[in-house]
């Protein structure tokens, strides 16, 4: 009983098929109370479909999803009264003010009178929108809409918050505030949060656990360190190295090192694929020969790398192959 009630969201064998295409394939997932769970995957992986099924907005082809023990397909109203949903690209009625938009949501959730106004004021303060509350929502910037969206979700005081791509198109400062707010919602209010995203960096800052979702399948889930561990077990270490001077002698010497499988060059950085952790021996060796180490980093500790590895494992390829060069590390889809 104890174990069971701790899982706020329970998804079992959830499957959704659109004609020939399988959008979500036999998904099994449990999310505990107060947890921030990140659902990661490229566009079109089935994240939004999963969310819609959780809210009872799309019927699953097979399997079930339970929120607080209530079936999402059969009791959508009960589920939706405790679950807040922040869609990607959240929209508001542009000819109503921010406050009026919130009031409308509150009314739909059965709030009225003084309690409603108090909650609106409290939430506007919380998301820092008091100044703009009486302006028409049509004049809001993307970041303001997002903040109002969060206030809108909180109107019903939800147990569970589901956010679909919340970090999309937000400036760095707004992002920082958003992530702090998400943390707060989980830790101080004890709400359970499910975030779907393809932006790894933001997610890894706030999530307790992540699930990697590719082509409708959850190929891995767990805490960051668990995922990292899993990759380590495969005996693969990827080391980034940037030294001064960068000459052929070095390359030849690196090749001779024990356990090195492959060396490739990305800009001025060497990427060394090895069977063991080379860092200790390498620093010593470099020091002996008078090289200055500019950059030394063992990959795997961040989501980018984990994500990339799991893609490799799942044998994913993409038509954007090779073109996709994101951020500094350049995560690619490889065969």
């Amino acid at each position: 009983m104890t174990e069971k009630s701790r899982n706020v969201i329970e998804i079992a064998h959830l499957t959704k098929q659109y004609g020939e295409k399988i959008a979500v394939n036999d998904l099994n997932l449990c999310i505990k109370r107060g947890e921030v769970f990140g659902l990661l995957g490229p566009n079109g992986a089935g994240k939004t479909t999963t969310i819609l099924m959780l809210l009872g907005l799309t019927e699953p082809t097979a399997g079930s999803a339970l929120i607080e023990g209530m079936d999402c397909t059969r009791n959508p109203l009960e589920v939706k009264s405790i679950t807040g949903y922040l869609p990607d690209n959240v929209g508001f009625y542009s000819d109503m003010t921010g406050r009026q938009n919130l009031r409308f949501t509150g009314r739909m959730n059965g709030l009225s009178g003084k309690a409603l106004e108090e909650r609106i004021d409290g939430l506007l303060r919380r998301v820092g929108m008091e100044q703009a509350a009486n302006r028409k929502a049509g004049t809001y910037s993307k970041g303001m809409r997002q903040r109002l969206g969060i206030a809108d979700v909180l109107m019903k005081d939800p147990e569970i918050i589901i956010m679909d791509e919340p970090t999309l198109g937000i400036d760095p400062e707004g992002m920082r505030e958003l992530l702090t707010l998400i943390r707060e919602l989980a830790q101080e209010d004890g709400r359970t949060i499910l975030i779907s995203s393809h932006q790894l960096h933001q997610i890894q800052q706030v999530c307790d656990r992540v699930g990697i979702f590719v082509s409708g399948q959850l190929i891995a889930s767990g805490t960051l360190s668990e995922l990292e561990e899993q990759i380590r077990k495969d005996g693969s270490y990827l080391l980034e190295l940037e030294v001064q001077p960068c000459d052929d002698r070095l390359l030849a010497m690196l090749r001779q090192q024990e356990g090195v499988r492959k060396i490739s060059k990305e800009g001025n950085t060497f990427l060394i694929d090895a069977k063991t952790d080379l860092r200790a021996s390498l620093t010593q060796f470099l020091g002996e020969y008078g090289y200055t180490v500019l950059h030394l980093h063992q990959r795997g500790g961040d989501l980018d790398e984990i994500y990339r590895r799991y893609f490799e494992k799942a044998g994913q390829s993409d038509e954007r192959d090779g073109m996709e060069k994101k951020k500094k590390y350049g995560w690619k889809y490889e065969k």
């Binding site: 907005l57 939706k80 009264s81 679950t83 869609p87 929209g91 009625y93 739909m108 019903k156």
Partner: peptide
């Protein structure tokens, strides 16, 4: 806004 509307109870 439809998304937001249908996610209300």
């Amino acid at each position: 806004t439809l998304n937001r509307l249908v996610s209300q109870p």
